[in-house]
Design a protein around this nucleic acid. Sequence first.
DNA 1: CCCACTTAGTAACGCGCGTTACCAGCGCTG
DNA 2: CAGCGCTGGTAACGCGCGTTACTAAGTGGG
Lengths: 356, 356
Amino acid sequence: MAKSTTPGNTAAVRQRGVTMKDVADHAGVSRTAVSFVLSNRENASISEETRTRINDAVLELGYRPNAGARALASQRTDWYGIVTEIVTAPFAVDIIKGAQDQAWLDRRFLLIAPSDQADAVGPNQGLEDAAIEKLLEQRVEGLLYAATFHRGVRVPVSANEVPTVLINCFDADGKLPSIVPDERGGGRVAVERLLQAGHTRIGVINLDPVIPAAVGRLAGAREALAAAGLELNPELVVSGYATADGGYDAACRILDRYPPKDRPTALFCLNDRMAMGAYDAIKERGLTIPGDIAVIGFDNQELIAAYLRPKLTTVALPFEKMGALGVQTLAALTAGQPIIADQQLVGCPLLERSSV
Amino acid sequence: MAKSTTPGNTAAVRQRGVTMKDVADHAGVSRTAVSFVLSNRENASISEETRTRINDAVLELGYRPNAGARALASQRTDWYGIVTEIVTAPFAVDIIKGAQDQAWLDRRFLLIAPSDQADAVGPNQGLEDAAIEKLLEQRVEGLLYAATFHRGVRVPVSANEVPTVLINCFDADGKLPSIVPDERGGGRVAVERLLQAGHTRIGVINLDPVIPAAVGRLAGAREALAAAGLELNPELVVSGYATADGGYDAACRILDRYPPKDRPTALFCLNDRMAMGAYDAIKERGLTIPGDIAVIGFDNQELIAAYLRPKLTTVALPFEKMGALGVQTLAALTAGQPIIADQQLVGCPLLERSSV
DNA sequence: CCCACTTAGTAACGCGCGTTACCAGCGCTG
DNA sequence: CAGCGCTGGTAACGCGCGTTACTAAGTGGG
């Protein structure tokens, strides 16, 4: 037993790939036997003795199966492809992380390819089609398509050749299953938190372009207020660009519009960057957070939310979970199982920090 | 067991892969001819006519080469593997982006696998070795190993079986080529910028743990001062944790230590998160940026630097370039070319915004 | 003693493709 | 007319492996 069984130190010697044949010869059996043992076949009858002899040979030679050859013979690759602009514009990286982790658990590989949908006339136009083509050449068994922000997309037709699941986006005209955040639920939970803290005059800093995130979050806010017998005062809803500057401007407008006593005591910012700007507007006026004004954000952008002072209470986008769920859904699809729903909503949990 | 289980719902248009044989039959030639045409062999003699007939057949049948089979036959996969904790703790995502882009240019595929080196006793212990093993099973032709922050690492031995390049880290005991940011140059450029703006009393907010980033950046700052005939006043160097809170505390200490006239007029924060905290300390004291105090950061964390108010002038870590350079170096290595240098330093460019 | 059945394995084919060796026909030269 | 080189291909092998069909040696029962 005390041989150089560790593949690490002996391996550098053996550049020439060692194959099953080598293992078979070394163990004095046929290649078939080796294959049977390595793939743990149920109904193969191999004596315990030769079985260990084969396993020993594997270790001694540092044999490593050739995934490509295996795929060719077995007609399955165990690969999923994920094509996403996240590669080109990292923002929702955690989608990849979630997908990767789940794929790893399922003993599958994730092939990550870039997309260009985000830029209408970027330099990489056409990159996406090429990327999908490449993925298909690798014979991926399923495709994940992920966007950096929740929106409708046009999925290239070539994606139809293989089961496909959308993450953080939805198919404008097709019938592809998709996984998106529950924006509305998130908006509701945010406002509920403010209500629970005793706030009734709540200002909303709204996102300017009409995107699913803005619409959903605002609707959720309305729901929460309605449930408390309140109504969203249109005067307290101010829109701005989805940046810190936009948030600053919007917050200024909303804060300066009223005398102190009528001023909203809480601000629901539809994303963290705007909350960042709102912080400045509030502090600039000598007001404290959350003492004078409570602030709640959305997105949970770690670098902002966790590092603002005070740390920002916010609603998290469940990127990781969405990625994982994407892989799970794909696994179900490729296994021929029925899908749970055409569009799966993933909850956006509240992250308590110190701004409420 | 029937193997023709139709996957998905509507996905299976053309599940039955069309092979070269099909193309050959359809074009009335031999499979060899098809292979020759598709691989654009120089010395193959195929008439122009049959050449187009074959190409037509390819289009009509929607033939797509099987990358796996091709790899098996040609003994090359065109794959590189990148194993990195960036997957588990996204921070330097742009390394992946840079590598991916470059790989794409080189018509190569990047297989991304997770690492766990960052957490000493994390839940995924051993994940890294398994990941590398998987990559080798896929017969990657080279390995990239990337870290989230500049540091020494212990590279698993199995990585020795294939050319390996380190990105944003270096091999503690071995001789692997590595690509790291020029921290010192970055520190120099930052302080030079401050000097150029007329500041001579410069405070430094230093990173607490002794890591290459801190050491290098500080050394660079000293160099710049020395070149201007100045010296770094130890009293003006304050250390803190690499967080916004740490930056806030450090800035408070440095600002409150002196009467206004002796106060430093500029702060070099060794990272952007600390700069974020410093902003708060400065604003809290009724001082303006850059009017009363100029601030310069390091790292260029977009979400912070571009969204602080005023936007933060900072030194960027060249993650993308490092990723690209990693792939290029790997390409040279696998091609048998000599490496430029054992350790390649990549410049950290100054990003002018509005805080100086 | 023969037959059926189990155990322990092996030979051989094919996955889709790259590649090498070969071949048939044709025009041209000596 | 033999011989040669050139054009335009083709047959066949092997890459490393999964898988099916088959065999040879024991085992037990009637």
